[in-house]
Amino acid sequence: MATRAVGAKRSAVVVERPGRPALVVYVFGRYIRAAHWIRNALLIWLVLSGIYIGNPFLARVLYPETAEGFVMAQIRGWHVAAGWILLAFTLARIYQFLFVNREGKLGIGAELRMAPIMFSWKAWRDQLAFYLLMRRDHPHFTYSNYGPLQFLVYTMLYASLLVISITGIILASPYVSGGLASFGADLLRPIEVWMGGLSNVRAVHRFVMWFFVLFTVAHIYMAVWNSIRTGGLIIEGIVSGFKADDVETTHVSKEELDKGKAQ
């Protein structure tokens, strides 16, 4: 799996492991790793606080006598704040996807150019065969960092992030007079009308939340599974930035490998 993150520093080392040697390449830059874990934390908080907002229970336990706590308003406030930060990360990521080219400069996005993988029957067949245990080695796509399933699900993930942000802005706007949410909601009014009012907006917000929960579970499982099955150091990769390149299938030459070993 020759995966190279866009704009990441490229360096390769070979680590000896019991079993087979792995060529380890630096694929995830600092920003990508930090953003991954920040988004992860934000999503956990947003899901938990969102479920709380849907069915609040704390205040009468914490403050049975008085209203000094304003628990609901605080949790809702931090929910909205986390939502704004998540939207900022999402927009940065979408910008990178669409407009940052292979050299890390403004242009047609390198990842956008990988989209044809979604429409390749061969790629789908290879990847599904791999996941269904019908082939041993991970399919290797020269023109894409992502497999077709990955590409489709990540596209859906960012589309869902946009949907949950849009519905979130519409839901947050009546609580504040003026400000960014209010301004955004004015622009998004046609979407609110098209959805048929706040109740449907809230229902969509809830369903998309469940998509994130399902995505997270599937994502963690597949990352762990892939890491074990291919020895790809994928879990390690999103912490350290270094991920194993498949030695057998990679186009790295023998000399390059030895050079890496010497280092």
Binding site: L58, R60, Y63, A67, V71, A73, P174
Partner: peptide, 21 residues
């Protein structure tokens, strides 16, 4: 122009998180 929620006499209890269970 405003929601029922925005002009509600029980709104204080909502923000405080005190609900009829």
């Amino acid at each position: 122009g405003d929601r029922i929620h925005d002009k509600c006499e029980r709104r204080g209890h909502f923000d405080a998180g005190q609900f009829v269970e």
